[in-house]
C-alpha cells in the first residue's frame, strides 16, 4: 500500500507492507540513523518524531503515519550537531548506538519543557536505555545544553 508522508520536510510517497513498522520503512529508505534494539518497545533507540512528538518508530505501523510529518535526526542536522558536540565533548556517546534516538528525545524535551529540573529531565529521558555510559555523562551534557545550573 502507498503512504504519503513528509519526511524531514520532503513530501514522499512510499510503498509499504500492511504490517510494516515505521522503523523498518525508514531504514529501508536510507534513514539509517534509526536503530532498533528490542522487540518490546522498551529501549527508545528507534525514537523519531511524528508530528513533532517523540514516538517509538518500531511500534508504529507505517500505514498509520500516512499524511503525517516524520522527523529523524537527519532532518534536524543543526540542532542535532549542536547537542552532539556537547555530548561528545563529555564523552557521553560511548558506542553511540543509542545516541540518535536519545538526541531526538532530548530535542523533543527541549521543545516541550520549559526550564526542566534535573528530575524532570531524568523522567523525560527514562525511555532511552543506554548500556554503555551509565547515564551520568548524558545528564551532564543535557544540563549543559539546557543551561541548567548545578543545584
Amino acid at each position: 500500500m502507498q503512504i504519503k508522508v513528509t519526511i524531514n520536510d520532503k513530501l514522499v510517497t512510499w510503498d509499504v507492507e500492511k504490517d510494516e513498522f515505521l522503523a523498518d520503512t525508514l531504514r529501508s529508505h536510507g534513514f539509517l540513523s534509526v536503530k532498533k534494539a528490542c522487540e518490546t518497545s522498551c529501549c527508545g533507540l528507534c525514537t523519531v518524531w511524528v508530528d513533532d512528538k517523540s514516538v517509538l518508530s518500531c511500534s508504529i505501523l507505517s500505514l498509520r503515519v500516512h499524511g503525517k510529518k516524520i522527523t529523524t535526526i537527519e532532518g534536524v542536522p543543526k540542532e542535532a550537531e549542536e547537542f552532539a558536540r556537547i555530548l561528545t565533548a563529555e564523552g557521553a556517546e560511548q558506542c553511540g548506538f543509542c545516541s540518535p534516538g536519545f538526541i531526538m528525545n532530548v530535542l523533543a524535551m527541549k521543545n516541550e519543557l520549559v526550564n526542566p529540573s534535573e528530575n524532570e529531565i531524568i523522567h523525560y529521558l527514562t525511555g532511552n536505555l543506554c548500556r554503555c555510559t551509565g547515564y551520568m555523562g548524558q545528564l551532564r551534557a543535557v544540563k549543559t545544553y539546557l543551561g541548567v545550573v548545578e543545584g
Binding site: 522498551c42 525514537t47 517523540s54 514516538v55 508504529i60 527514562t126
Partner: peptide, 12 residues
C-alpha cells in the same frame, strides 16, 4: 501512568 516505560512509549 508516570512509570510506564518512557515518554515516547506513552505517546503511543
Amino acid at each position: 501512568v508516570h512509570n510506564i516505560i518512557g515518554v515516547q512509549f506513552r505517546n503511543g
